[in-house]
Structure formats: structure tokens, C-alpha cells
Design a protein around this nucleic acid. Structure first.
Length: 1008
RNA sequence: GCGGAUGUGGUGAAAUUGGUAGACACGCUAGACUUAGGAUCUAGUGCCGCGAGGUGUGUGGGUUCGAGUCCCUCCAUCCGCACCA
């Protein structure tokens, strides 16, 4: 009986669903194992073959762990809030909840297109998900708890002494007893107050101050504003100055926004990386994003001497105030190289630095104003792109060097960023290349403080120099000098040792409809939290999904009655960003239906963190960082017993599309109609298999030349016309192409080229065998490129087991690879071959031998058990498939139909090809549905031991022949046998061997 | 510029600890068979050479009895970050 995969797969999928075969138990004595995929955003386009790659790998691993006796949690859900559904809603008026439901469950969209549905597409792959645990971030049952976590963050601050988050009540109590002078907390508060002052503050003022401490807070901050999307974006959602989604320009705007004080966790996010098993590349990306630098702050006093200051004559009241303050100002800088402080010959402030106007002298006021204007006009992107162009402007002011007491010039320059450190630097041209270039460009003094280093061609930036010319630092190597300099700076009270992070607090509000509403209302424009008993605050209905006319977010359109809970003057109009729901979803799977807690303590205590997480590397600085942050926070509050969410992370490589091209080739000429010159396309159009210019001497190319002469005659042109030949590559849908051969009939019938060629003669330039070969290019798989391969078609044609194994066989999981179906037959044939081993007769019974298995069959089996097991342990799924093929080939050669051997193999193969294995498992006489919990075969080395071994013998490292010797021989005996062997003399060529190296069981090398 | 990764036949790739380079599969060549099936079976297939043999893992060097694997140099491609003081 043939391998009828369609019936088999259908049958077992139904069986698994009906019997809930893959349900994970919360109360189990078995050890747990948590295998998680990054959940998908359910888009209308559906899944292509790239999406399931990671899911297949994780499913194989989950099934493997079940066979090893683990209680496996392997859930799936949907990250279902997001932009595409909202934009579709704006265009069509359809509620995003409806679109989202259709995209998940299948159906017809409101333009009549059939949607397969994510769930159906996932189901046909035979994944062993426990669907009873499904979560959707856009479901109120789920986002109730996203809102609840937000509230916990709001009610917490970061205590830097205890190095953990604490209740904000602790802080309020401290304010009431001691004010804020003794508080050690991560904050943005730049004022100090006493207990009495605190008590005297109004409620509104108190809340304003608390906002500067809370872990999520409302503040006016410079944000990435994307006008096209009408919303702000987090730093990780902005790539090269444009939005990650859609590629729209992004500008800086000062707005009142919710933020997450992720900065508080910078150090723990950094050190935590050392405890988890992720790739170096992702860890480095996170380290880079956090951007820790160790150094110290130093304050330079501004030298206000009467002669040089601008505002003696200035009228501004603001400046008058400064003048009244007895004109004292300090510039604080951050440096990682305090050892080079004697090399400071000037200072540079960011153009936006608040002190700039205050210190600029009259002489330079116009220049500074002009420079500031230029800088503000440049976008962030332009400023970054324009690195080579050195620009700057002297302010005319001076600072006093804190050690030498000398005056150094103060400049402004846009290479200093307002957003990093203090927005000011002490410039050390001998030790920093940018400072060196700046000094050289503007002719500022360069002081060399490195012993014996030449700085005439550039700065010396290594930290291995000895410091000179620097008073108390003289003669010290840089690392020691750094320590001493910090000590001295602190002693003199002009700064202190400090660690700086590049990590910014994360903007947490979006001016969108399709996201979680905040559990927040306003009274007198002061935010208050909604009480837990009113959660979730559900999304209110609105008339349109667009911002209001005054630029308020879409939720501002909601009537008061549209809110399920309304309090105060108004509710919060912003919604949460996409990463809110995905920052904790892995916890909800443990307890998805709990209505009283986000996850019950005993469940999270049992399941712990994710043992294996598989997903794309594009989330390196977004989701993966935020999820770690929230986990650490929930750990601090005692809700979860671990502070890293994902123990091991594997990033599957992207599957790229292979686009096919046809090349339209035609001649153009110009004609004058009513004194207007028009370009005309010739009446004949050629379709070439490839660029004809690549083969200019070919026969086919001659056809073009002839045609051109024809055209030349036809149009009867006067004067010179070059008659250019246009070569236009056009994508064709890959469904019309099989191994680069174009289905010409179908192409002619269906393709859009008709419009372009109507009323024209068309000639296809064919290969010698009459086929038309398409060109191809590897690029991202996308609908617009006509190169999408859906899993559905392949499952239909070859079966899910074949597709699962083929995607694994393609290459290492982590590697990016172009999609190509050329090899799929090989994998399909393997499964047929495997099926044939069972000798299944027409009535569907397996004809197997019950005898004791042969020695060689046992050897094949145990070799395979060992290799496949090892491959699974190191996530080498591609070699696993190879090993199954080798095994099937060997058993076929051995004509093995031994029941005992085949039964173990069925278990071994079942993680990769679950459907066919279930079928065979039952044919072997086992109970339906028990395969998933069978025992993974045990490897027995005894079956691999052979009496003889074929030693490869090499001479000076070159392998010459093999010699069959008993395994038990000692190296000495092997050496003797080899030297006595006939062929040895031939390869010795009369030399006496100097040495013979015998690696037992491996190789013999004769050194001459 | 900095960081990470990769480089092996016509193609996808394998070689886990330094020990027979190219397993497995696709493709291709030749043949067999037939219930004409995206079958099956046999033989071959890195390159050069009729052959003996030579040569071969991006380049050049080194360590070693032995290097795809370790070290150094350079080249190419991909990814991430990028005036971060």
C-alpha cells in the first residue's frame, strides 16, 4: 500500500485536536520544559514558508522533550494589537477587532478576498501546541493584566541602594519624614526639598514630583514623532531616521508622553546577559544599545570677566537675572578619560545646551545664533550622515581649567549631542580623534600629554600610553592615572566617578486606536490610576480611527458613554505601544484563564522561565529588552521567581524569496507631435530569457539589430536618432515558474503583460529545447514581489511531514537561506522509502518479522539513535534529517523489516514527521495517541563495537590506503602490522619511517 | 570606524574534541525496469589527467606527525551600531 499522506495527516490532526493530546499539565510530578515561539502578528497576508521555520524547529524540540519524559509547555498565541489592522480600519472603516478575528480564524475580508486564517495555516503543519492556552494581546481578558502591570510600574520607584523596585508608598513616607535629600533612587528630579516643604506642596505639585520617580511616568520629553503615522515611536522603532514600519520620516518633538524608566534597570539588563544562553550577536546588540561607559563627571567654571560678556549691554530680563545671580555658571562634562584632563585645550557644548546663550559674548552672538539655527534645521539623520564635515562656532566665552587655572575657549559644535551625557565635552585633541580634527580645523592649541607619542597626524586613542606634562599624573600609565584623577577630582569636590548609559527611557504611549487603553484618568490634568475593580478599561467605540481635528489621539473621539468606565475630567487618550502585550505574554500561557491574577504564584513557580525561545533576531533591542525589563521588575515585586525570562534563545534565519523575472526588450524612438517630442515604443516587443547585452554576438541579439534597421526605415527619420534598446526586467509570479522554466501558455493567458503589449507583436526568445528560462534574484519574500510560497500549497502536494523535514533539511536553523523547492522530492522520497520498510499490504497491515534483529540492523539503529539524539541536543535539525536518510538507505539495503528495529525508529522519527509515525505506530500494534508520550530510544554503545576496524594509513599526512585490523590491537601492534603490510613499502619509496603515529580507532600516520 | 557572523563541488550543505574533506540531498551522465509514478533499481559524478598520479575548503603565511578546524595577514559578503565624550 502506498504512502497516502493526505488521508494520514488529516486523520491524525483530527485525532490530536479531539483528544487534546498535547495538553500540558499544571500539576505534574514530571520535570517541566518550556518551549516558546515568538508569537506572530496575524496579518491579512497569511503565513508564507518562512514563518513556520522556527515553529517547526521548536515543535520538533518540544516533541523530543516529551519523549524524554518532560512535562512540556508549548503554547501559541497572537500579538494582535498593531498598525496594519488599524490602517486597514482607517481605509475601510472595518473595526480592527473584526479584521483581526478574520485573520486568525479565517473567512472573507470585506473586499471579498478569502483569508485562510493563521490558526488553520498553523494547524495543517501538525504542531503540538496546547491550544487551550492560546492568548491574544487584543483580548480584554488579556490586556486587563497588561493594564494591571502598568499600574504596578506606576506605583513603584527604583531604589538604587536596595538595587530593586520598591513601592512608591515607601518613597512618599520618606519624603514626609526627610524630604528627598537622602533618597537614593533613579529619577529625573532636579530640585531638593525638605519634609516640611513636601507637606506644604499641593496635591498637583506632589504628583508632579512623584512622576519624576515612578517607573512609568508622564513627562514632557523629546520624542520621535512620525507625522505620516501620526504617532510617536520608541527608539528601537526608528531605523536610520525613518520609521521601522513604512519608512516614513521621523522628527524630534517635545511632547507630553508616558515613558518607562528602563534606565533604572540598565546595569541589571547588562549583567543579566552573562547568565543566559543567547548568541553573542544579540547580546552584543543589547550591550551596545545599553551603552555603558565608566568615567567621571567634572565641572568647569565659566570665566565671566566683564570685558568679554555680551549681556552687559543686553536688554533681556532673562539675562538680567543671570547677571543678578552674580554671574556664576558651571559646565558639567562627562569623560571616560579623566587622565587626559591636562590635555584639555577647549570645551564644546551641544548647540542646544542651555548655557549657550548665557555665556556667549557680544562679539560672537550673531555667529552663535546663526549656527544654532543651522543645527536646528538639520534633521537628526542629516546630522548623523554629515560626519566628515567639521562644523563649530566659538562662543567667545572661556572656562577655567580646574587644575591649571588657565582659561580655555568654549565652542559649540553639533558633534556633541545634547541627548548624551551632559551635552558638553572637555576636548582633549591629543587623545580623541574628533577633538583632534576640530582643533586642527579651527586652529586651536593641541597639548600633547602622552610620553613619546606622535600626534601630528592624529590623536593617540589607545589607553596604553604613559601620561606626561600633567603634574601629579606624570609617569603613570593611563589606567592608573584614570583612578588617581578621579580620586583627585572627588577630593577637590569638582566632580565624581560616574557611570553613564546610552539607554534612553522608553516612550510608552502611542496616538493610536488599536492598542491597550491606559488605566488612567485625569483631574485637573493630573493623572490618576483607575481602581483595579474597574479593569479592564476596554477600547471604546469611535466614529473614525483617525486623530481628532485638534490633533488628539483617536480615543478622544469616544463619547463619555462609550467608555466602560469613566472617571475624572477625562480618560487617557493614548494607547500602549505594541511591545506592551508582548513583554509578558510568556507568563500568561502558564495560567491563561485566571481572572484574579495575571498568573497564579504556584503556576509560575512550577513552570519557571522559558527553557527554549525561538524567534527572529529583529527583536534584539525591542521586545527582547523590554521583556527582560518587565520580568526583572515583576521579580523585584515578588510576583515571579526568576529575573530573566528566556534562558536559551535561538534566532532562526530568514527564508528569502526567489523572485523570477522575464525581460521585455524593445526599441524606442521619438516623434514630434504638435511641436512636442514624444517617446514611442516600437510595435514589436521581445521577451528575452536574460539580458541580451550579455551576449551581444548571439543570434538572438542579431534579431534586435535587424529590427532596429527595420524601425529606422519605417519611421523614415531625418538626422540622428540613436534608437535605444530598452531592457526591462519584470517580475513574474513564481506559481508560473517551475525550476526557472516559465509556463508559457499560462503566462500568455494570465499575465498582466497584455496591457503593456496590446496591439503589438510579441516574440519570445526561447532556449534550444523550446523552453523559456526566467532570470532570478534572491530577496525578501513579499506579496509585492510575486515570490511568496505558502505552506498550504506544499502541504497539499507533499504533505506536512515532508514540508517539516524539508524546511529543516534546507540548512542550519540560524542561517538565512533562499527558498527553493528543488530538493523537496528528496525528502518526500525518504518518507516513501521509510514507509516501504513496513511492507504494508493492500489491506493496510504491516508484514514484519518478529525475530531477533540482526547485528547490522542493530548497529544501524543505534548509530542513528546516537546521532539523531546528539543533533537534537545541539539544535542541528538539518543533519538529523540526513541521518534518518542514511538509516533508511542502510535498512533498505539490509532488507530489514524487523519489528523491534522499526518500532524504535518510529519513535525516533516522530518529532520530525509526527503524522506518518502515528500511523505506523498504530500499525505496529500500539494504542492510538500514545506515541507522543512514548520513551525516546536508548542508545547502547555495545551494538556499535566491531571486531575489526579499517585503519586509514597516511604517509606524511596523505591518506594512501586502508588496512583492516582487529580493534583490540595496541598501538605498537598496529604499527607493526602497518609496517609489515605490502603496500607500505611502495609508499615509503625506500625511506625508513622516522616515526609512526597511531591514534587508536582513528588513523595511522607514517612520518618519513 | 567599531562589533558580530560567514566564506567548502554545478546547487543546498556535512565534517560536534586538530585525525579518511565533500556525508546526505538536489542536479547531471549512462543503463535497467515498469502497475507511467512528481516512481523504483544499478553505476558514475570536486577539479586537472587516457593513466599512474597531481591538486583542492576566499588570499598569503605560521604552528603540528597531521589543519576546513588553532594563530597571524589580507580580501569579499551579510547583519548590527555609529560623532556616545
Amino acid at each position: 500500500m502506498d504512502y497516502n499522506f493526505q488521508d494520514i495527516e488529516k486523520k491524525w490532526r483530527a485525532f490530536w485536536a479531539e483528544n487534546k493530546t498535547f495538553r500540558a499539565e499544571d500539576n505534574s510530578t514530571k520535570p517541566k520544559f518550556y518551549v516558546l515561539d515568538m508569537f506572530p502578528y496575524p496579518s491579512g497576508a497569511g503565513l508564507h514558508v518562512g514563518h513556520p521555520l522556527g515553529y517547526i524547529a521548536s515543535d520538533i524540540y518540544a516533541r523530543y522533550k516529551r519523549l524524554q519524559g518532560f512535562n512540556v509547555l508549548h503554547p501559541m498565541g497572537y500579538d494582535s494589537f498593531g498598525l496594519p489592522a488599524e490602517q486597514y480600519a482607517i481605509q475601510t472603516g472595518q473595526h480592527p477587532a473584526v479584521t483581526t478575528k478574520t485573520n486568525i480564524e479565517g473567512g472573507v475580508d470585506n473586499q471579498g478576498n478569502k483569508i485562510a486564517g493563521y490558526r488553520n495555516q498553523l494547524d495543517i503543519m501538525g504542531f503540538s501546541f496546547d491550544w487551550d492556552r492560546e492568548v491574544r494581546t487584543s483580548s480584554p481578558d488579556y490586556y486587563k493584566w497588561t493594564q494591571w502591570i502598568f499600574k504596578q510600574l506606576y506605583n513603584s520607584y527604583y531604589d538604587t541602594t536596595a538595587d530593586k523596585a520598591q513601592s512608591i508608598d515607601v518613597l512618599i513616607a520618606e519624603f514626609s519624614t526627610n524630604g528627598n535629600t537622602k533618597v537614593n533612587a533613579t529619577n529625573d528630579c532636579d530640585i531638593t526639598f525638605s519634609a516640611e516643604e513636601w507637606k506644604a506642596f499641593s496635591e498637583k505639585r506632589k504628583e508632579e514630583i512623584l512622576q519624576m520617580y515612578r517607573l512609568t511616568f508622564l513627562a514632557d520629553s523629546w520624542v520621535n514623532w512620525c507625522p505620516a503615522l501620526g504617532t510617536v515611536l520608541a527608539n528601537d522603532e526608528v531605523v536610520n531616521g525613518v520609521s521601522e514600519r513604512g519608512g516614513h520620516p521621523v522628527e524630534q518633538k517635545l511632547m507630553r508622553q508616558w515613558s518607562m524608566r528602563i534606565k533604572a534597570y540598565a546595569e541589571r539588563l547588562l549583567t543579566g546577559l552573562d547568565t543566559i544562553d543567547w548568541t553573542d550577536s544579540i547580546k552584543d546588540q543589547q550591550r551596545n544599545w545599553i551603552g555603558k561607559s565608566v568615567g567621571c563627571s567634572v565641572r568647569f567654571e565659566v570665566a565671566f570677566d566683564s570685558a568679554s560678556v555680551a549681556f552687559d549691554s543686553a536688554q533681556s530680563t532673562n539675562e538680567m537675572k543671570v547677571s543678578e545671580r552674580s554671574r556664576r555658571a558651571e559646565i558639567e562634562v562627562f569623560t571616560t578619560r579623566p587622565d587626559t584632563i591636562y590635555g584639555v585645550s577647549f570645551m564644546v557644548l551641544a548647540p542646544e545646551h542651555p548655557l549657550v546663550d548665557e555665556i556667549t559674548t557680544a562679539e560672537f552672538a550673531a555667529g552663535v545664533a546663526e549656527y544654532k539655527k543651522q543645527a536646528s534645521l538639520k534633521s537628526e539623520r542629516d546630522r548623523q550622515a554629515d560626519v566628515k564635515n567639521i562644523t563649530g562656532q566659538n562662543t567667545g566665552a572661556f572656562a577655567i581649567h580646574p587644575f591649571t587655572g588657565e582659561k580655555v575657549q568654549i565652542w559649540i559644535g553639533d558633534y556633541v549631542l545634547a541627548s548624551y551625557g551632559t551635552g558638553a565635552v572637555m576636548a582633549v585633541p591629543c587623545g580623541d580623534q574628533r577633538d583632534w580634527e576640530f582643533a586642527t580645523h579651527f586652529g586651536i592649541e593641541i597639548i600633547n600629554i602622552f610620553e613619546g607619542k606622535d600626534i601630528s597626524e592624529g590623536a593617540y586613542t589607545e589607553k596604553d600610553a604613559v601620561i606626561a606634562n600633567s603634574d601629579f599624573l606624570n609617569g603613570l600609565p593611563a589606567p592608573k592615572a584614570i583612578k588617581l584623577a578621579i580620586y583627585e577630582i572627588e577630593k577637590r569636590g569638582i566632580g565624581k566617578g560616574k557611570t553613564q548609559y546610552r539607554l534612553r527611557d522608553a516612550v510608552f504611549s502611542r496616538q493610536r486606536y488599536w492598542g491597550e487603553p491606559f488605566p488612567v484618568y485625569y483631574k485637573d490634568e493630573t493623572p490618576y490610576l483607575v481602581d483595579d475593580k474597574h479593569l479592564p478599561i476596554t477600547l471604546p467605540e469611535v466614529d473614525k480611527y483617525l486623530p481628532t481635528e485638534d490633533g488628539e489621539p483617536p480615543l478622544a473621539r469616544a463619547e463619555k458613554s462609550a467608555w466602560n468606565h469613566f472617571e475624572g475630567d477625562r480618560m487617557e487618550y493614548n494607547t500602549m505601544p505594541g511591545w506592551a502585550g508582548s513583554s509578558w505574554y510568556f507568563l500568561r500561557y502558564m495560567d491563561p484563564k485566571n481572572d484574579n491574577e495575571f498568573v497564579a504564584k504556584e503556576k509560575v513557580d512550577y513552570w519557571q522561565n522559558v527553557d527554549l525561545y525561538i524567534g527572529g533576531s529583529e527583536h534584539a533591542t525591542g521586545h527582547l529588552l523590554y521583556a527582560r525589563f518587565w520580568t526583572k521588575f515583576l521579580y523585584d515585586l515578588g510576583y515571579v521567581p526568576f529575573d530573566e525570562p528566556f534562558k536559551k534563545l535561538i534566532n532562526q534565519g530568514m527564508i528569502l524569496g526567489r523572485s523570477s523575472f522575464v525581460y521585455m526588450v524593445y526599441i524606442t524612438y521619438t516623434v514630434e507631435v504638435d511641436s512636442e517630442v514624444k517617446e514611442v515604443v516600437d510595435d514589436k516587443i521581445f521577451f528575452f530569457s536574460r539580458n541580451p547585452y550579455l551576449e551581444e554576438n548571439s543570434e538572438d541579439f542579431q534579431k534586435l539589430i535587424e529590427r532596429r534597421e527595420q524601425v529606422r526605415k519605417n519611421i523614415n527619420f531625418e538626422g540622428y536618432q540613436s534608437l535605444p534598446i530598452t531592457h526591462l526586467p519584470m517580475r513574474v509570479d513564481i506559481s508560473l515558474v517551475d525550476n526557472d522554466v516559465l509556463n508559457l501558455d499560462l503566462f500568455k493567458k494570465t499575465y498582466k503583460y497584455k496591457e503593456l503589449t496590446k496591439n503589438k507583436e510579441v516574440e519570445f526568445i526561447l532556449e534550444e529545447d523550446g523552453t523559456y528560462i526566467c532570470g532570478h534574484e534572491v530577496e525578501k519574500m513579499s506579496k509585492s514581489k510575486y515570490n511568496v510560497q505558502t505552506p498550504d500549497e506544499l502541504v497539499e502536494k507533499f504533505g506536512a511531514d515532508t514540508l517539516r523535514m524539508y524546511e529543516m533539511f534546507l540548512g542550519p536553523l540560524e542561517q538565512a537561506k533562499p527558498w527553493d523547492t528543488k530538493g523537496i522530492n528528496g525528502v518526500h522520497n525518504f518518507l516513501r522509502k521509510f514507509w516501504r520498510l513496513f511492507n504494508i499490504d493492500e489491506s493496510g497491515n504491516a508484514q514484519l518479522s518478529n525475530d531477533a534483529p540482526s547485528k547490522e540492523a542493530l548497529k544501524t539503529l543505534h548509530k542513528t539513535i546516537k546521532k539523531v539524539g546528539d543533533d537534537l541536543d545541539r539544535f542541528s535539525f538539518n543533519t538529523g534529517v540526513s541521518n534518518f536518510m542514511i538509516c533508511a538507505n542502510e535498512l533498505t539495503d539490509q532488507k530489514c523489516n524487523n519489528k523491534q528495529i522499526l518500532e524504535e525508529l518510529v519513535v525516533l522519527l516522530s518529532p520530525y514527521a509526527p503524522h506518518v509515525c502515528e500511523e505506523l505506530w498504530v500499525k505496529l500494534g500500539n494504542e492510538a495517541g500514545t506515541l507522543s508520550y512514548a520513551k525516546f530510544p536508548e542508545f547502547n554503545e555495545a551494538h556499535l563495537v566491531e571486531a575489526n576496524i579499517a585503519y586509514p594509513v597516511s604517509f606524511n599526512g596523505k591518506m594512501r590506503f586502508k588496512i583492516e585490523l582487529p580493534t583490540a590491537l595496541t598501538p605498537k601492534e598496529v604499527e607493526a602490522e602497518v609496517l609489515a603490510f605490502d603496500q607500505t613499502q611502495k609508499y615509503l619509496e625506500g625511506n625508513t619511517p622516522k616515526k609512526v603515529i597511531v591514534v587508536p580507532g582513528k588513523i595511522v600516520n607514517v612520518v618519513m
